[in-house]
């Protein structure tokens, strides 16, 4: 390839220009990526957490819901994790301040939330270690709750109790109908009724304590009768498997449904757990290519 002097000169100029431009861009890049905002004053705050559960360098810092800065560094020391926060905003912590790590979504990601405290409390004295609370782990909580519900249902808890109660109730009504026991006889046998009438007649005459108790009208009897009828009705309904409670007892479908639901929730939680690493992006891209 032959070049005249002028062409050679332009080669030099073009190459030089290109190199300069790229170096300039590289410099700009470096400054941008070094995360420091050169044009505004930064306020630093070191907060000591017992643990931060996955808070990482570069996470956001919020004050009153406003993004004011970043987590600049995290250092694990004996007394906890020292997080250095840099902010565009000077926080003034009061005694009842509260600094916590908050999960930003179910899939992970955290931010630091700072509540400065109420104005009527005295400001934090200079030089005190600022302590922060670790995050409430959303997924951990959810799993915990699900586990509790599940245990109470499965391990002879609520469901078992309910079943037992119903059985008792059923037996009771059965006995009542069969005329067993005092109340049963009261309900079924004429003799007793007659006796009772006689007794009551005597009582009427004797005007004893009981007599007084049993006023001449048959209110008590009526009441008792009505109650028993209602009870019987209930027991029958339950026996026929009608109504929620009935179904709950008669049908194991509900139990199965609850059990299935538990399984699903568990799978969902597992899914969530598994999807979290997807947020560490590279896996997606290389899947994409």
């Amino acid at each position: 390839m032959k070049r005249t002097r002028v062409q050679q000169l332009s080669v030099e100029v073009v190459v030089g220009f290109f190199v300069m431009m790229i170096l300039l861009a590289l410099g700009t890049f470096t400054i941008i990526l070094s995360q420091d905002n050169l044009f505004s004053t930064q306020h630093n705050l070191t907060v000591v957490f017992d643990q931060v559960t996955g808070l990482i360098k570069g996470d956001k810092v919020y004050v009153k819901g406003v993004d004011v800065g970043r987590v600049k560094s995290l250092q694990v020391q004996r007394d906890g994790v020292h997080a250095l926060l840099t902010m565009d905003y000077p926080v003034e912590l009061r005694e009842d301040y509260r600094i916590s790590v908050v999960p930003s979504s179910v899939l992970g990601g955290k931010f630091v939330e700072i509540r400065e405290g109420s104005d009527d409390r005295p400001p934090l004295p200079e030089g005190t270690t600022v302590r922060g609370q670790g995050p409430a782990d959303f997924i951990a909580e959810l799993t915990e709750g699900v586990k509790a519900v599940r245990e109470s249902l499965e391990g002879g808890g609520v469901l078992g109790n309910l079943e037992e109660t119903m059985a008792n109730l059923k037996e009771l009504t059965q006995r009542l109908r069969d005329g067993e026991g005092t109340i049963g006889k009261l309900l079924t046998e004429d003799a007793l009724y007659t006796n009772l009438l006689a007794v009551s007649a005597r009582l009427e005459q004797g005007q004893g304590t009981l007599g007084k108790l049993l006023s001449p009208d048959d209110t008590l009897y009526q009441d008792l009768s009505a109650t028993v009828a209602a009870l019987k009705e209930t027991a029958e309904t339950v026996n026929r498997g009608e109504g929620t409670l009935g179904k709950l007892i008669k049908d194991d479908g509900v139990y199965k449904q609850v059990d299935g639901l538990m399984g699903e929730i568990r799978a969902a939680v597992d899914d969530l757990r598994e999807t979290t690493p997807v947020v560490s992006f590279s896996s997606i891209f290389f899947g994409a290519f």
Partner: peptide, 23 residues
């Protein structure tokens, strides 16, 4: 586009900034 469409299923498509830049 690829990561964005994938991330959008989780409502996280704003993260393509990081995705593209880092990769």
């Amino acid at each position: 586009l690829q990561t964005g469409l994938e991330l959008r299923r989780f409502g996280l498509q704003q993260n393509i900034g990081t995705a593209v830049t880092v990769v």
